Computed example of a mutant assay.
Amino acid sequence: MLEFYTNQYCGLNYHTNKDEQAKAGSIISNFENSFIETDRKELLERLYNSLAKLDLGRSAVIYAIKE
């Protein structure tokens, strides 16, 4: 969903263009913060839960450094 938003409406392809990754990150943060700052965090969580049920949820990439 947010990938569609950033790709189609903002014209960003942050998967292949590293310069656009920071832009996309701030757009997504602003999107999420707009819900949180207006006391609609529960609505945002319901949105993400609904997307996850459709296998369209957010993905997580975890990096680790071996000590």
Rank of each mutant, 00 (worst) to 15 (best):
G25N: 09
G11E: 03
N7R: 02
A64N: 10
R40H: 08
S50E: 13
E45A: 15
S50R: 14
K66A: 11
I65T: 15
S34A: 11
E42G: 09
A24V: 03
K53Q: 09
L56M: 10
I27S: 00
A52G: 13
D55G: 06
K53M: 13
A24G: 07
F4W: 02
R40Y: 05
C10R: 09
E37S: 07
A60Y: 14
K53G: 15
E32V: 10
R40A: 11
T6S: 05
E67R: 13
D19V: 05
D19A: 10
D55W: 09
S59M: 12
E67G: 15
S34P: 00
A52M: 07
E42D: 12
R46I: 10
R40M: 11
F35H: 03
R58G: 10
I65P: 08
F31W: 07
A24N: 02
Q21S: 12
E67T: 15
D55C: 01
N17F: 07
Y5I: 09
R58F: 05
D55V: 03
I28F: 09
N13L: 05
C10I: 05
N13I: 05
G11V: 00
Y14M: 06
E42M: 06
A24F: 00
I65L: 10
Q21G: 01
N30K: 09
R40E: 14
I28H: 07
N33T: 09
K18W: 15
E32Q: 13
Y5L: 13
E42H: 08
T6G: 00
R58A: 12
K53F: 04
I65N: 10
F35K: 02
D55I: 04
S26E: 15
A64W: 12
Q8H: 01
S34T: 10
K41F: 04
G11M: 00
L2K: 05
S59L: 07
L2S: 00
K23E: 08
A22S: 10
E32A: 15
L47Q: 03
K53N: 12
S26N: 13
S29K: 15
T16W: 00
G11A: 01
S59F: 06
R46G: 10
E42Y: 01
I65D: 07
I28D: 04
S50N: 11
C10P: 00
Y48K: 07
L43A: 15
E3W: 00
K66C: 11
E3T: 09
I28M: 08
E20R: 01
L12W: 02
Y63H: 11
S26T: 14
N30L: 12
Q8C: 02
S50W: 14
N49I: 04
L54Q: 15
S59T: 12
D19S: 11
L51T: 04
Y63I: 08
N30T: 12
S50C: 15
I65W: 09
Y5N: 08
H15R: 11
N13K: 06
L44V: 04
C10L: 13
I62S: 08
L44M: 01
I36M: 00
L43R: 08
I28A: 08
L56E: 12
K66L: 10
I62G: 02
S59W: 06
L56T: 07
K41A: 14
V61W: 06
N17K: 05
E3V: 04
A60W: 13
I36E: 03
Y9R: 03
V61D: 07
S26P: 00
T38S: 08
A64Y: 11
Y48D: 12
H15K: 06
N30I: 10
N33R: 14
Q8D: 00
